[in-house]
Design a binder for these strands. Structure first.
Length: 504
RNA sequence: GGCCCGUUCGUCUAGGGGUUAGGACGUUAGAUUUUCAUUCUAGAAACAGGGGUUCGAUUCCCCUACGGGCUACCA
């Protein structure tokens, strides 16, 4: 192992960031911080045709919301920059040429269209050791002709020359020893015709130059690992090669492939951390933030998707995750995403959070529903009173709007069948009794209420529900006298009279 | 098709040669809460199949099945 743990997350700015990517970030981050290492963010924007405006900013926003800090990156700077591959363009060709000179790579002049044609005609066509002798490249074209082609500026790529018969083996920290036969992997393009490197070249060169010690990436990269392993070897950097860890994938709930952003709409749950609107297509993808997740719940949920600490503990904050994270406890198999469980983590975190911590997160959801001019001290108490019945942040509106606005609809089915003039009289008198008193406590209110009921020979139980419906509008909410105390005597009386009219 | 990875309750998972195969989500039933939620108690629910190895396999090996990934001048 290198002396210093340095890991990177290397997204391509081609769109939003989905939870599979966020989990890869999280595992990178947890591992780095557990080992007092550095977390680097490198933007792999080598495909200029797929660039999407705003993607990089979006990634940073997500990171910020998650509470993950970057040590080196496009914004933070660092000693190994630039951290955007498009800004490193000039450096890759040199490395590719080195490989050509050493006989591990070659120039290829076939156009994309020609190759596409081959794929149409020849089943399972691959640019590899068996086909390259029939194609237009520096292996088949005489040296002088190649030289002049290049001098004339003929479009060409540089491809790795995969050995014909070699076992490429490596150790994966999660999966153990893995081997591929070199004949089964094709001659991947290393440098594109536009002079940009492909992922395969750039990732190896940059991981080397940036002294990356451990690579965490999704399992979908496993098949191209032999290309990377060989590149590390051909460049003569084998001793400095990072350790590999291919993470299991997050799968669709119905077990049909890896989770994609389209699944959010299909299943009705978010797959991106924050709302994302694609600048090119205008397509909108809902985020966990907007769905009402708190970052602690989101992170906790993601961490448990494929990792556990070996005990029955399920609730972890970031500090605990960092302290306890270890590679050997990462599960090998992919995990189907379960939104119900995700919501449970969120509910646990809402219950565990202080009202003060929740307040700035709850407020926007109330504002969004038209509840404005909120007094923070008042909101604080309200949050404390209802947070245990909230799973997602929008539930605070459902569970607490009556603290701010009087109900205009009443669940009259719960009242009317048993409504009578005696009850009507009871509430009129109750309102009358509390009228001139200020600051009645919940307990005092309850005493007055019950004494009056006794005096009138009425059952308290038959009066409680109507009272609740009057104040709240429905059969839900905290202790009814607590609500009365909170909204105040004047408002309580007002609501009683309002409801009395409606119940007639 | 080829190559690679994987497979414990519906889901996330613990376990690991001898266990009543444990926990959590969800679900069912009950208790508490004069509403709802919380909380608590209890229940149903799993080692893909077949061969080995072994005194004994869910655990180790092989095969099959199934699931997934990759198979671009995309990452």
């Amino acid at each position: 192992m290198k002396d210093k743990v340095r890991v990177r997350f290397a997204p391509s700015p081609t769109g939003g960031l989905h939870i599979g990517g966020v989990r890869t970030i999280l595992f990178n981050y947890l591992f780095a911080k557990h080992h007092n290492g550095e977390f680097i963010l490198r933007i792999e924007d080598t495909d200029q045709t797929r660039f999407v405006q705003g993607a990089e900013d979006y990634i940073y926003s997500c990171l910020k919301w998650c509470g993950i800090t970057v040590d080196e990156g496009t914004r933070e700077g660092g000693n190994y920059g630039p951290y955007r591959q498009s800004e490193r363009k000039s450096l890759y060709r040199e490395y590719a040429e080195k490989l050509v000179a050493a006989g591990h790579a070659y120039y290829a002049f076939d156009t994309s269209e020609e190759l596409e044609c081959k794929r149409q005609v020849i089943e399972n066509f691959r640019y590899d050791h068996s086909s390259r002798k029939q194609l237009r490249n520096s292996l088949t074209i005489p040296h002088e002709a190649v030289e002049s082609l290049i001098r004339e500026g003929a479009p060409h790529v540089i491809r790795i020359k995969m050995p014909e018969d070699e076992q490429v083996a490596f150790h994966d920290m999660i999966r153990g020893d893995i081997a591929f036969h070199s004949s089964e992997v094709d001659d991947k393009v290393l440098l594109k015709a536009d002079g940009m490197p492909t992922y395969h070249l750039a990732v190896v060169v940059d991981d080397y130059l940036m002294k990356i010690s451990h690579v965490f990436r999704g399992e979908e990269w496993l098949p191209s690992a032999p290309v990377h392993i060989l590149l590390w070897k051909y460049f003569g950097w084998a001793d400095e090669m990072p350790k590999w860890a291919h993470l299991p994938l997050i799968l669709k709930p119905d077990g049909n492939g890896k989770l994609s952003k389209r699944d959010g709409e299909r299943f009705g749950f978010p797959v991106f951390p924050i709302n994302w609107v694609d600048a090119n297509t205008g397509n909108k993808t809902e985020g966990f933030v907007e769905a009402g997740f708190v970052p602690e719940g989101f992170i906790n949920m993601l961490a448990m998707l494929g990792w556990n600490d070996g005990t029955d503990q399920e609730i972890f904050n970031m500090e605990e995750l960092i302290a306890k994270f270890s590679l050997d406890r990462i599960h090998k198999a992919g995990a189907k995403f379960d939104y119900e469980k995700a919501k449970w983590y969120n509910a646990e975190w809402i219950k565990a959070s202080s009202a003060g911590h929740l307040l700035p997160q709850v407020k926007p959801f109330l504002n969004h529903k038209g509840i404005n001019n909120i007094d923070d001290a008042y909101l604080l108490d309200v949050i404390e009173m209802v947070k245990e019945r909230c799973v997602l942040l929008p539930d605070f509106y459902e569970q607490a709007s009556f603290f701010f606005t009087a109900p205009v609809h009443w669940d009259s089915n719960a009242v009317k069948p048993k409504w009578n003039t005696g009850k009507d009289a009871f509430f009129r008198e109750f309102a009358d009794q509390i009228k001139d008193k200020n600051d009645l406590s919940s307990a005092a209110l309850e005493t007055i209420f019950k004494d009056l009921a006794t005096e009138k020979g009425m059952k308290v139980g038959e009066l409680m529900l109507p009272f609740r419906i009057m104040l709240v509008g429905g059969k839900f909410g905290p202790q009814v006298f607590d609500i009365a105390e909170k909204i105040g005597i004047t408002e309580t009386i007002h609501r009683i009279h309002n409801a009395l009219e409606a119940f007639k």
